[in-house]
């Protein structure tokens, strides 16, 4: 009685031992081989870096964050690589965009940031996308007609962006952009980018912010067609910029970054 039992036991034990030998490589606990993390120009590398470092402000999928949506082929096509790289590396002075590169020990190195720009273009870009009116993306300080800007503002912006926020309203306006507090938090470049590329990802009231191609609304809420010209945008920015009561507030990082750039 005992002996056959023992034989069965031995057979079972042997089978288990052999099976585990064979299966050892497929067990779920086997740690994955350590591989170098994917570079940032690959889809996985880009997505990982983005969700760790950008998603907080630019939105989980590149849109619908409080900051400028990056999943915007038109915007990506308009901004050249070196400008994008500079913004990533050094941040943008006067705004809430921090620099991720530089000479700090904790900084992301330049090669990785270059790869990231490439990865972003691969993921979200589209080389054939062009700005609707071919208006240069970059703000150039220079002479612009702020008075013309004010006229344009009255004709095309003020119905959504009234100069004073009406009490309790929500359905018909999306809020003031002439608010002095707001203006001190955004750069002229931010204003220009918003005007040129619009903001169509956030479901704003009463309508999404159009790009420079329009259509707009006049002061009475009537549709106004016709794109803004490059100089129109300059003038609008000059007008808004002039409403700042004092120079643009520089966040604390700016000193370090400007120093950094000169190195």
């Amino acid at each position: 009685m005992i002996r056959p039992m023992m034989r069965v036991n031995t057979a079972v034990a042997l089978t288990i031992a052999l099976a585990s030998l064979a299966a050892c490589d497929q067990l779920p606990g086997k740690p994955a081989l350590r591989v170098a993390p994917p570079t940032l120009d690959t889809a996985a590398g880009f997505a990982g870096f983005y969700s760790e470092n950008c998603a907080g402000c630019h939105g989980a999928d590149g849109t619908q964050g409080p900051a400028r949506p990056m999943r915007d082929a038109v915007y990506l096509a308009a901004v050249p690589d070196d400008a994008m790289f500079n913004m990533l590396r050094n941040g943008i002075e006067g705004t809430r965009m921090p620099g991720f590169g530089g000479n700090r020990i904790t900084a992301v190195d330049d090669a990785a940031l270059t790869a990231f720009v490439k990865g972003m273009r691969t993921a979200w870009g589209n080389a054939s996308a062009t700005a609707p009116t071919n208006i240069a993306w970059a703000h150039q300080p220079g002479k612009a007609d702020a008075e013309h800007g004010r006229e344009l503002f009255d004709a095309r912006c003020v119905s959504c962006h009234p100069r004073t926020q009406p009490v309790g309203s929500s359905a018909t306006v999306s809020g003031s952009v002439t608010d002095p507090f707001y203006l001190r938090l955004v750069s002229d470049q931010h204003l220009r980018t918003s005007i040129v590329f619009g903001r169509n990802d956030l479901n704003s009231a009463p309508a999404n912010m159009p790009s420079a191609a329009g259509p707009f609304q006049d002061g009475n809420g009537q549709r106004v067609d016709g794109a803004l010209s490059s100089s129109d945008v300059d003038d609008l920015v000059a007008y808004l910029s002039g409403l700042r009561s004092s120079p643009l507030y520089a966040p604390p990082t700016s000193a370090a970054q400007s120093k950094d750039e000169t190195k």
Binding site: A55, G56, D179, S204
Partner: peptide
């Protein structure tokens, strides 16, 4: 940098 705000808290908000 990594935790996005849910869209419902951002939609239909003023620029400020």
């Amino acid at each position: 940098t990594s935790t996005p705000t849910a869209v419902q808290y951002l939609q239909q908000r003023t620029p400020l």
